[in-house]
């Protein structure tokens, strides 16, 4: 098969790559673009370790073909922090010891970000169901749920402060 040339945006940067028609977005991120934050835990969409946002929509990058992302916007765990400032989710995961081995963590962070973008104040049950596509074998999920809950609070407070500033300014 001949290579397919693709132009796309990853974490805000324009990138171009040539991939084989069978290669997935995960293969492309890891093997062509050097972004190994997304992991392959299964390759069949069952573990969520390869979660990324595709035009803002949470997807398993192992179930997207590299050739499909022409002109799209991709966001990975590598793009979560704002410069040297960690995203509140990243901070809370550390504070709550929400990771042990850490291999599922990038996927959880991306999935949790997608959740908090559409629901700023999720209940425990909403958090659990929203993260059901991400497998963790170390933690029993307990500290992950707590960390997401805490980060949701941080983001709401940030939002409020931003609104206040806007109103004042």
């Amino acid at each position: 098969m001949k290579g397919i040339a693709v132009s796309t945006t990853v974490n805000g940067d324009a990138v171009e790559f040539v991939c084989d028609a069978r290669e997935t977005l995960l293969d492309v991120l890891r093997n062509h673009l050097g972004l190994t934050g997304a992991k392959e835990g299964c390759g069949t969409g069952d573990c969520g370790a390869c979660s990324v946002l595709l035009d803002g929509q949470l997807v398993c990058s192992c179930l997207v073909l590299g050739a499909e992302v022409e002109g799209r916007e991709i966001e990975t765990v590598e793009g979560m922090a704002d410069g040297d400032r960690l995203h509140p989710l990243q901070k809370r995961f550390l504070e709550h010891a929400a990771l042990q081995c850490g291999v599922c963590t990038p996927g959880f962070l991306v999935a949790a970000k997608a959740l908090l973008e559409r629901n700023s104040n999720p209940s425990e049950s909403e958090i659990r169901y929203a993260l059901a596509g991400n497998l963790c074998r170390c933690t029993g999920y307990d500290k992950i749920v707590h960390a997401v809950h805490a980060a949701a609070g941080d983001l709401r407070r940030q939002q409020k402060a931003r609104k206040k500033r806007k109103a004042a300014g």
Partner: peptide, 21 residues
């Protein structure tokens, strides 16, 4: 005490290198 793990930042930013990385 409950201190932050030293390998934490690498593991929440996708920088930590695992077997296939």
């Amino acid at each position: 005490t409950r201190v932050m793990r030293p390998d934490g930042v690498d593991k929440v930013t996708g920088r930590a290198r695992y077997g296939a990385d």
